[in-house]
Design a protein around this nucleic acid. Structure first.
Lengths: 324, 324
DNA sequence: GGGGAAACTGCAAACGGTTGCATGAACATC
DNA sequence: GATGTTCATGCAACCGTTTGCAGTTTCCCC
């Protein structure tokens, strides 16, 4: 059905190997011959068969991109940027969703292993041991996590967290609640560490509340604890949590930022529209950087190391001086 | 490096063809032999090579999913649902983003053609002629568009639009602005048609304004025309347009829903948080339905027809009776 | 106990490319 | 003019799996 290298060879009167070389090793074939081959290929509409090529070269030209939840607004900008960047070096990207389950993640990686040259794991839930084990089969680059000996891209929330606490301190807040996220999350660990240090530095009292589910439900469920803590400002694990809390507070008749100031993390599309002060995560840049590392790792085998990207506070209308 | 069928054959003392059959045609091999083969495969960690399999079966087990803009919040729930659904029948999904450009879309399809068993085109920008031409190479299923002779899934905004106009009419609005989207958009055509009919039915005056860019910028840019039209309520092409307009109106000191009522389309995550009345699009259901049609089309070759899904109005806080 | 069907299994040719090696021509070198 | 290079191309094996065909064994039935 489809036109193959053999058809092109026949049409241009050369051997298949010459056609192959005309495409993948131009310098090995006479320019005139090559022109004839290319011309024939074009009129026939020849497209190399990737599967066949993969079989002999052991390169599929495909990458895997594995995220916890495609519909979580944190991920799409990263996916978009990574995909677009991969296309520039003629790679296709499998995108898959683990639904936040480590089990699904492992199975996904295993099932993709024979089909990709490498994979991007974004905030994986897998144990370090398992990641190390699987990385024997497929080159990995990890985003927002730092397993030993694997190239990684980190969006370091610490810089943004420092700015956030400084911002709150300068508004006059003294009692700050920190809504923590999943224990295993690297971002959560950095956030907690940086917030603790910055609180001490500015003489603030930090109420750690959590761990919370990294969802709207997690945010609204945290409302009672937040109110009980006596905090006048809240730094939430991410925008979803912040927005869930926001909704719950408003439902209880409280004003934001009047009664309580609120800071999120991620700077999602929704945060922009809800006028939420938040810490911007460079998701698109991270996606591109991760693809760069991955392609480097694939072609040159050595560890390209770690890239750390800074974050910054975006001040909007959900923060103001405390009430009384 | 990797474990192949040959290793398994050797380990279990049978020919490679028997190993192959043990996996893909169980009934052709003696249960005991099969058990031995499976056991050997498991201890060796054998995983079939998809590329090799694709070469002889002409089935890759891969699907393509092509959308205009991954980061547009309309798409991720569809992508997520489609991907998850495809996984259930052991298919992997390439996700690609055309950045709204027809040219990129065509090239993407061509480059994927040899690697996928079929593709989902969501709201494609391509001409009908080109879609027909390309569909000779790859089985397509189209979402929110209706080219002749291709299976399609349609999220029919008409039902929701009728509910929206009825809602606005019952609140007492008489002058309604419709912010139209891209001319070529099937959704836009349905929206315009349904709004026109419903306006007539309820005795409303409909001001068609557009076409507008289907983005926040499009929405904010439309503000002057909306105000000049004298409308007291607006139905926007999608949530992004509605939210862009909302922001611009508030920046001008106008109240929503006080001075102007606002209805969007899509029911994105952001609309939920911004308390925007909107028309819910069944994106996840559409993703699943589209995968079903595609798999049907791939395995049985005949046209599985068209699936139409209804939409419904979700009333929130951005609509209220007109001011005066 | 001979014939035939049924159940397994092996053989080998595909599938569509890539690539190391061999071949031959053209050309330069001494 | 014999020798050695370089360049361009052909030949054929190989990548890992599937599958039509043929061979072998077992079993059934008359």
């Amino acid at each position: 059905m489809a036109v193959t290298i053999k058809d092109v060879a026949h049409a241009s009167g050369v051997h298949v190997s010459t056609v192959s070389r005309a495409f993948s090793a131009a310098h090995l074939v006479n320019p005139e011959t090559r022109a004839r081959v290319i011309a024939a290929a074009n009129t026939l509409g020849y497209r190399p068969n990737r599967a066949a090529r993969a079989l002999s070269t052991r390169r599929t030209g495909n990458l895997g991109l594995i995220v916890a939840d495609i519909a979580n607004p944190f991920f799409p900008p990263l996916i978009k940027a990574a995909q677009a960047h991969a296309r520039r070096s003629d790679h296709h990207v499998f995108v898959a969703d683990t639904d936040e389950q480590a089990r699904a993640e492992e199975e996904l990686i295993r099932s993709m292993a024979t089909q990709v040259d490498g994979a991007l794991l974004v905030a994986p839930r897998l144990s370090n041991r398992l990641i190390a084990e699987l990385s024997a089969d497929v080159p990995f680059v990890v985003v927002n996590r730092q397993p030993a000996n694997l190239p990684a891209v980190l969006m370091d929330v610490a810089s943004g967290a420092r700015q956030a606490l400084e911002h709150l301190a300068s508004l006059g807040h003294r009692e700050i609640a920190l809504l923590t996220g999943p224990r295993a999350s690297w971002t959560n660990q950095r956030l907690e560490g940086a917030a603790t240090d910055a609180a001490e530095h500015h003489g603030l009292h930090l109420h750690r509340l959590g761990p919370n589910q990294p969802t709207e439900e997690g945010g609204s469920a945290a409302a009672p604890d937040v109110l009980a803590s006596g905090a006048t400002a809240v730094l939430a694990y991410n925008d979803l949590v912040a927005l869930g809390l926001l909704q719950e507070l408003r439902a209880r008749g409280l004003a934001v930022p009047g009664d309580l100031s609120l800071v999120g993390v991620d700077n999602t599309h929704t945060a922009r529209h809800c006028d939420l002060t938040t810490i911007d995560m460079p998701t698109a840049a991270a996606g591109r950087a991760a693809i760069d590392l991955l392609l480097h790792r694939i072609t040159s085998e050595d560890d390209p190391g770690t890239v750390t990207l800074d974050t910054r506070l975006v001040v909007r209308g959900s923060t103001a001086p405390p009430a009384h």
